[in-house]
Design a protein around this nucleic acid. Structure first.
Lengths: 228, 228
DNA sequence: ATCAAAATTTAGACTTATCTAAATATTTTT
DNA sequence: AAAAATATTTAGATAAGTCTAAATTTTGAT
C-alpha cells in the first residue's frame, strides 16, 4: 500500500489521474475492459490522444492494455483511481457541508481539488467531516485502501409503496427542476415516504414533513433516494 | 476588477501564477523591478527559462519587462499575484486551524491549493475562518481587491522591556527548535511578556502563562511576534 | 466468407514549459 | 576606458499532452 501511495504522490500526473478515473468509472471500477472511444467520449478528447496515454499508462503498469482490445486497471491502477475518487467525493461533502455549496456547484471545484497531493490533507478533511460514507449525490466514498461499496442510491420512481427513503441527489440539475424541489421543500437529506403509486401513469403520492404531494413519473425518475 | 477576476480564472496557467507570485514577493509587491537571476534563484529554475516566461507574461500585459533591465508587475499582474498570495495564506490558516497541521507542514500543501480556481471556494474558506487578517506565520492576507497591509511581525529580539506580544511564527523551523518551543509551552498565538533585556548578551527574561523563562539572543531572533 | 462501416492506431505536427550551450549585454575592476 | 567577470538573452533541443489526417484492424451485414 505504501508503494501505491508513493506513486500517487510522486509519479502520476494530473492527466494520468484523470484517465485512470475515467477507466475506473466506465468499467466497474476498472475491472472490465473499456474501449478507447468510450474514454475519449467521457473525457471530451480524441481517440488518438487516448491511445497515446494508454501506452504510457501500460508502460507504468497502471493498466492492462491490448491494442484494439480495450483497457482495464491493474491493482495499482485501481488503488490510485479509487484514491482520486475518494478525494473527489470527500471534497464534495466538504463543499456542501462546510461551505454551503449547492449540489450542482460542487463538481467543477472537486474536479480540481481531487488532484491535490497530500495524504495528511485528505485524512484531515475526512476527520473534519466525521468520516462520511457517501457524497452529496449519494455515491459511496472509497475507503483509504480503495475499497468501494456498491452504490445504494436508486431513483425515487423505483421505490415501492409505504417505503421510507431520503433524498440523496438528482439526475437533472437544471434550474427549473431545482426550483421545483425547493418550492416543495425537498432538499438533500429530506425524508420521503411513498404513500401511493398509480399503476396507470406511474405518478406517486409522497409525504414530506407531514405534508402530502403528488408527483409525476418524470419528477420521480429524476430524484435519487436511499432506502432508510 | 471583474476582468482581472476572469483572467485569474480563465487565462493564467499555474506556472504563470508562480512567476507572478515570485515577482510579487521579490519586488515589494511587484512594484520595483527584479532581476532575471533573482527569479531563477527563487524558483529553482534557469535564467533562460525565466526570460522565456517574462516575454510571455509581457505579451499578456501582466508584467513590464525591458530586456536586461528587470521586470515589475502591471496593475493586472499585481491583482492576480495578490490573489494567489491571498489564497495561499488563507489555505495555510485553514490547515492549521481546522486540520491541525503544524507550522512547517502547511507550505507544500498550500503551494498546491493556491492554484485552485474558484472565487466561491476561497470566499467560503475566508468566511469559515472568520475573515482572518494574518496567516500562521504572521504575514498579512491580501483582501479581495488585492490590497496588502504591511507585515506587522517582528523578531522577539526587537521587542522592548515590559511590552506584551504574541507568537506568530518562527524563522528556523528545524525539529530541534520546534521541540525547544514545545518544551517551554510556546506555540502559535502564545502571549509573551518581555520582562528584562540584558544589554550584555541580549538575552531576555520572558513571561509565558505566569511562568518565567530566560532565553538567549539566538532563540529570540528566531521567533516572530506581533505586538499586542 | 466477403466487404463495407466503425473503431482504433500510427504518423506527423503543435503548444507549453523546461533545459544546455553559445552569444551578447552590462557591470565591475583595475 | 579597457579588460574581466557577471548577468541576460538567444538558439536549438526535449518531454508531455494534445490534435488532424491517414492507415490499419475489427465488427457486422449480407
Amino acid at each position: 500500500m505504501y508503494i501505491c501511495d508513493l506513486k500517487t504522490i510522486i509519479l502520476v500526473t494530473q492527466s494520468e489521474e484523470n484517465y485512470l478515473k475515467a477507466i475506473f468509472h466506465l468499467g466497474k471500477q476498472g475491472s472490465i475492459a473499456v474501449s478507447t472511444n468510450a474514454i475519449a467520449d467521457k473525457m471530451n478528447t480524441k481517440a488518438s490522444s487516448v491511445t497515446d496515454m494508454l501506452k504510457k499508462l501500460a508502460k507504468k503498469d497502471l493498466v492492462d492494455y491490448k491494442k484494439y482490445k480495450g483497457v482495464s486497471l491493474t491493482k495499482t491502477g485501481k488503488v490510485i483511481a479509487a484514491n482520486v475518487v475518494r478525494k473527489h467525493r470527500l471534497w464534495e461533502v466538504f463543499l456542501v457541508e462546510k461551505l454551503n455549496f449547492s449540489w450542482d456547484e460542487v463538481h467543477d471545484v472537486a474536479e480540481q481539488l481531487e488532484h491535490i497531493k497530500s495524504q495528511k490533507l485528505i485524512n484531515g478533511i475526512d476527520a473534519l467531516l466525521n468520516f462520511p460514507t457517501h457524497d452529496p449525490h449519494g455515491d459511496p466514498i472509497p475507503d483509504r485502501e480503495g475499497n468501494l461499496q456498491k452504490s445504494q442510491k436508486i431513483f425515487l420512481s423505483q421505490v415501492n409503496q409505504n417505503v421510507n427513503c431520503s433524498c440523496v441527489g438528482v439526475r437533472d440539475s437544471s434550474a427549473n427542476f431545482l426550483k421545483y424541489l425547493d418550492k416543495n421543500n425537498i432538499a438533500l437529506g429530506t425524508d420521503i415516504q411513498v404513500l401511493t403509486k398509480e399503476p396507470f401513469d406511474e405518478s406517486m403520492t409522497i409525504k414530506i414533513n407531514d405534508s402530502e404531494l403528488t408527483i409525476s413519473k418524470e419528477i420521480a425518475s429524476n430524484m435519487y433516494v436511499k432506502i432508510n
